[in-house]
């Protein structure tokens, strides 16, 4: 290889590596501030700040959804199977909100690990399924 070319090649590699390290560091610092959610267990461990807008994600416990009659107010419990958190919300739930399904709640943490939600987002996984298959699965589980 031509010495000048080789030097250029090595120079590229070194600069690339150093820039990559720098960007990775910046992004990991930034990642702390990105909107990721806390699972209920971390809420109970006190890892989430009180009084600031945070996100809590987990599965809605079956049978936990309770509506206050003749209003939009409701409560439900979300779980990560290690801990539970009670969520209070006033508003319209997304179409995909279902008990037994994942949600991400945007809101403020009140004392006693209760979350006052401003927004409820439905989370889904990458397991897509035709309705017939889901129905068959449901029936198989019942038997």
């Amino acid at each position: 290889m031509h010495p000048i070319r080789r030097r250029r090649f090595i120079l590229i590699l070194i600069s690339l590596a150093s820039v990559a390290c720098a960007v990775a560091l910046v992004l990991s610092a930034l990642g702390e501030n990105l909107n990721h959610f806390y699972p209920p267990q971390e809420i109970l461990q006190g890892k989430a700040p009180e009084g600031r807008t945070i996100r809590v994600g987990g599965m809605v416990v079956k049978g936990s959804l309770k509506r206050v009659p003749s209003s939009l107010q409701l409560t439900f419990i979300i779980t990560d199977f290690k801990a539970d958190v009670l969520v209070k919300y006033a508003g319209i739930l997304p179409d995909l909100f279902r008990e037994g399904q994942g949600v991400v709640v945007v809101g403020k943490l009140l004392p006693d690990h209760v979350v006052m939600a401003e927004q409820v987002l439905a989370k889904h996984d990458e397991k897509y399924m035709p309705p017939e298959a889901a129905e068959a699965l449901r029936r198989a589980k019942k038997i």
Binding site: L34, N35, L93, L96, F97, Q119, L121, A122
Partner: peptide, 9 residues
């Protein structure tokens, strides 16, 4: 229609 939001950071 799925999550309930257009954009999330």
């Amino acid at each position: 229609p799925t999550w309930g939001t257009w954009w999330e950071w």
